[in-house]
């Protein structure tokens, strides 16, 4: 079993994970708990607003996740957050303005608009999709999120849509083209990969988010 680092207790940050009603969010919670922090999973806007750090997880389709976020009345709360927020995988994609991952009617999906970019389908004639497995990530800007993480470190990805490289790109990865492995706009950060499933490098990134960002 993982050990809880008692030294963290005195400086323990309140880490809140937004309950986006996606099926598999426990693994992210467990990963942060392995670092010695408690994680509150909630959709209560007050608790989210009071958190030191906010995690926005997501698995599934953008349309389904945005429907849940709207139904829970979380849009405004998330848009007004001033503390560091980390979106993970679909959670990162939800931070953008829109996603090409169409809803049932074939329309693009309006997202939270926290980072001025968008989500496109990955396309390739030769490479397998979805992009699934361990791939190399390199930070392109200085950020405490990537403290101690060298260029070309492997992280675990599972996705078929991506954010193109652009002004808000914090780290890149190559598959079909160079895309954003991480994005940042002020206090809003997102990673396309799954740090909770990326071994020691992933643990380092989550620790950086809780302790250094």
């Amino acid at each position: 079993m993982s050990t809880v680092n008692v030294n963290n207790a005195s400086t323990r940050k309140q880490v809140v994970m937004v309950d986006t009603a996606c099926a598999n969010i426990s693994s992210l919670k467990f990963a942060v708990e392995r670092l010695g922090y408690d994680v509150l999973v909630t959709d209560d806007t007050k608790r989210i607003a009071q958190a030191d750090k906010v995690l926005l997880p997501g698995v599934g389709s953008a349309a389904a996740a945005m429907t849940q976020i709207r139904a829970k009345g979380l849009v405004e709360c998330l848009q007004n957050l001033q503390q560091p927020v980390l979106g993970i995988c679909l959670g990162m994609q939800l931070m953008t303005q829109r996603s090409e991952e169409a809803n049932a009617k074939g329309e693009t999906v309006d997202c939270l608009g926290l980072v001025k970019t968008e989500v496109n389908a990955m396309q390739s004639d030769t490479l397998r999709l979805p992009h699934m497995g361990w791939n190399q990530v390199s930070a392109v800007k200085d950020s405490p999120l990537f403290y101690g993480i060298e260029a070309n470190t492997y992280f675990y990805f599972v996705h078929g849509y991506c954010v193109p490289q652009g002004e808000h790109t914090l780290a890149t990865c190559e598959y079909t083209k160079t895309f954003s492995a991480a994005i940042e706009n002020g206090n809003f950060m997102g990673v396309q990969f799954h740090p909770e499933r990326s071994g020691e490098a992933g643990a380092q990134l989550l620790r950086n988010f809780v302790e250094r960002v």
Binding site: M1, S2, F30, A31, R34, V158, E196, R197, G199
Partner: peptide
């Protein structure tokens, strides 16, 4: 399944 998810950090 939960016991595994708690301890391992790979998919």
């Amino acid at each position: 399944v939960t016991r595994i998810a708690k301890v391992i950090d790979i998919p």
